[in-house]
């Protein structure tokens, strides 16, 4: 029940966040009124397909959205203070110290012209003003912490000399160097092989416990979410369509999009006879979004009322869903069974 929590128990509260990309021809609302909270010490996952706005949401928190993107509204409360009111200098003191971030591509996220050590040192220099020797000592400790074998050798190597998994460990070492309270992980394992992914997820979980961090995990991989998150936000076309604890999302999904997403994923632990259930059509282009519910054109249950945008409503379990089916205004089939098509 994330949203009924009192604010001091939430490390992060995002309210009605809006991030828009301005081009000469159009305005694309990549993040369109997103609200959710991250309870202290918990892991919240944001899932969605490409174009859902999940990555822009995560970049917005640290105010790292590149031009022509701009945060145009809402608030991002970190420990009660709105990050959108902070000056650039104040933000710099938060980035890498209180909130850290790791990215999808460990191959390209490290600077190819500096050694691993130099790149970790930098975090200590910026936030703790450490000199070369003491920064190096701390960097070595960090490399050990993230499980890099023979750190004394690795510290002087360049990123291209390391494997993908090792590089992601180095990214984690940089991110966790100053003991942040919140780690934002944007698709941290997408570029990695399954056996390496298992290692990295295990490492993040392990370090989260050791360092008492909260984690925001952005991913498109439902399996990763199921294994690591406490709460899950499902995004579609810039909006959250469902927010719930992880068990509810997977065992009793409410929104037809969540249901469709779960059932179109071919499972690896059982066989499906015949065709996979599919969500028909494709994600609408961001400049031609439907006026009402964004998912209505692809939804099997859509009715007249879906031409009006539904609100994100909290149900009796404390979970949230953005769908007319669960309101008393529903004008479609009263017997609609959203979960019927699921095979489990």
């Amino acid at each position: 029940m994330p949203n009924t929590n009192k604010s001091e128990e939430n490390i992060l509260e995002i309210n009605n966040l809006q991030t828009t990309f301005f081009t000469e021809e159009s305005e694309v609302k990549a993040v369109d009124g997103v609200s959710f909270t991250i309870p202290k010490g918990k892991t919240v996952g944001v899932v969605g397909e490409s174009g859902s706005g999940k990555s822009i949401t995560s970049l917005s928190i640290l105010r790292l959205v590149d031009k022509p993107g701009k945060i145009v509204g809402g608030e991002i409360k970190f420990k009660g203070e709105n990050l959108l009111d902070k000056s650039e200098t104040e933000m710099r003191k938060i980035r890498g110290k209180e909130i850290s971030m790791i990215f999808q591509e460990p191959m390209t996220s490290l600077n190819p012209t500096y050694t691993v050590g130099q790149q970790i040192n930098e975090a200590f220099k910026i936030h703790e003003g450490l000199g070369k020797t003491s920064a190096r000592k701390r960097s070595l400790e960090m490399l050990k912490l993230v499980g890099i074998p023979s750190p004394e050798k690795r510290i002087d190597q360049y990123p291209h000399e390391l494997s993908g998994g090792m590089r992601q460990r180095v990214m984690i070492a940089i991110a966790l160097a100053c003991n942040p309270e919140l780690l934002i992980a944007d698709e941290p394992t997408t570029a990695l092989d399954v056996t390496i992914q298992a290692q990295i997820l295990e490492l993040i979980k392990d370090l989260q416990q050791k360092l008492h961090m909260s984690v925001l995990l952005i991913t498109h991989d439902l399996g990763v979410v199921a294994e690591t998150c406490d709460y899950v936000a499902v995004m579609y076309c810039g909006k959250i369509v469902e927010f719930a604890d992880v068990k509810s999302i997977f065992n009793n999904p409410q929104h037809p999009y969540t249901v469709g997403l779960l059932s179109s994923l071919p499972p690896h632990d059982r066989d499906i006879e015949g065709d996979l259930p599919v969500i028909p059509g494709a994600v609408p282009s961001p400049d031609e979004l439907p006026v009402g519910c964004r998912f209505a054109p692809r939804c099997a249950h859509a009715s007249d009322i879906c031409n009006t945008l539904p609100n994100l409503v909290t149900n009796e379990n404390g979970n949230q869903v953005r769908c007319w089916i669960y309101s008393d205004k529903w004008d479609g089939n009263p017997e609609v069974e959203v979960n019927a098509e699921r095979t489990t």
């Binding site: 399954v194 298992a198 991989d221 399996g223 690591t228």
Partner: peptide
């Protein structure tokens, strides 16, 4: 065996 066991399962239970 390890490859199969490494795939994250969509069943949180």
């Amino acid at each position: 065996k390890s490859l199969l066991s490494a795939i994250p399962s969509v069943n949180p239970d």
